[in-house]
Simulated scan of single mutants.
Amino acid sequence: MNIGQAAKVSGVSAKMIRYYEQMGLIPPAHRSEAGYRHYAASDVHSLRYIRRARDLGFSIEQISELLVLWRNCGRASADVKAMALSHVAGLKAKIAELQTMAHTLERLADHCHGNDRPDCPIIAGLAEPAATAPPASHKAPRFGIDTPASSRHRAAIAAHA
């Protein structure tokens, strides 16, 4: 199928398909004599996998590691689980950060009269220095860094590159 058909069937835009091909997430498409890309059902399956991983917030680097695991029938499920839990920790940290931002803005908005006067606690609050950052122990682990199999994943990715 051509790139337009692959895009429609996979739910991934043609632009993103070309990008994923350029990033090495999918192999280069076979080309017709006229130079048009042609995709097999397995390519579309990979595109759906990538799309689902993107929908769950995984980065391109993370998806690359997940694809290596997906294609490796000898993988340990513990490796996949460790990657997923590491990603969950990162998502929870981001959620906490966004909740803090929302609470700060709500507090500032609660103190604003919203009238014609120029004094505004929101503007004043934005001009204040930010609160100190949380201690390093509260940072979420970086994906693939704090997992026992991360070095094996990088080696497998390098071997397939």
Score class of each variant (00 low, 15 high):
residue 104 T to L: 09
residue 158 A to K: 11
residue 119 D to Y: 13
residue 130 A to Q: 10
residue 11 G to Q: 08
residue 136 A to T: 09
residue 139 K to Q: 11
residue 29 A to C: 05
residue 16 M to V: 03
residue 39 Y to D: 14
residue 96 A to I: 04
residue 121 P to G: 14
residue 15 K to F: 00
residue 132 T to R: 14
residue 42 S to C: 11
residue 49 Y to W: 05
residue 77 S to M: 11
residue 65 E to P: 01
residue 101 M to V: 10
residue 66 L to F: 12
residue 68 V to S: 12
residue 142 R to G: 10
residue 108 L to D: 11
residue 7 A to E: 10
residue 58 F to M: 13
residue 122 I to M: 09
residue 87 H to T: 02
residue 88 V to C: 06
residue 27 P to W: 08
residue 86 S to P: 03
residue 27 P to G: 09
residue 89 A to N: 02
residue 122 I to Q: 08
residue 121 P to W: 14
residue 12 V to G: 05
residue 142 R to M: 06
residue 12 V to P: 01
residue 118 P to T: 15
residue 150 S to Q: 11
residue 115 N to I: 15
residue 96 A to T: 08
residue 113 H to C: 15
residue 17 I to L: 06
residue 59 S to L: 03
residue 14 A to E: 05
residue 27 P to E: 13
residue 14 A to S: 10
residue 60 I to F: 08
residue 106 E to W: 02
residue 64 S to Q: 06
residue 41 A to F: 11
residue 139 K to N: 12
residue 26 I to D: 08
residue 123 I to T: 11
residue 2 N to G: 09
residue 7 A to G: 11
residue 28 P to G: 11
residue 149 A to P: 00
residue 1 M to D: 04
residue 68 V to K: 03
residue 82 A to P: 04
residue 160 H to Y: 00
residue 80 V to K: 01
residue 99 Q to K: 10
residue 147 T to R: 03
residue 136 A to G: 05
residue 66 L to I: 09
residue 29 A to S: 13
residue 106 E to S: 13
residue 53 A to P: 04
residue 87 H to R: 03
residue 48 R to C: 06
residue 34 A to C: 04
residue 156 A to P: 02
residue 110 D to M: 12
residue 32 S to N: 06
residue 41 A to Q: 14
residue 77 S to W: 12
residue 63 I to L: 00
residue 113 H to G: 15
residue 116 D to R: 15
residue 81 K to R: 14
residue 135 P to E: 12
residue 115 N to A: 15
residue 1 M to Y: 04
residue 157 I to F: 01
residue 59 S to T: 12
residue 44 V to D: 06
residue 45 H to L: 06
residue 3 I to F: 08
residue 67 L to K: 08
residue 139 K to T: 04
residue 29 A to Y: 08
residue 38 H to K: 09
residue 32 S to R: 12
residue 126 L to W: 10
residue 31 R to W: 05
residue 55 D to F: 02
residue 40 A to Y: 14
residue 22 Q to I: 03
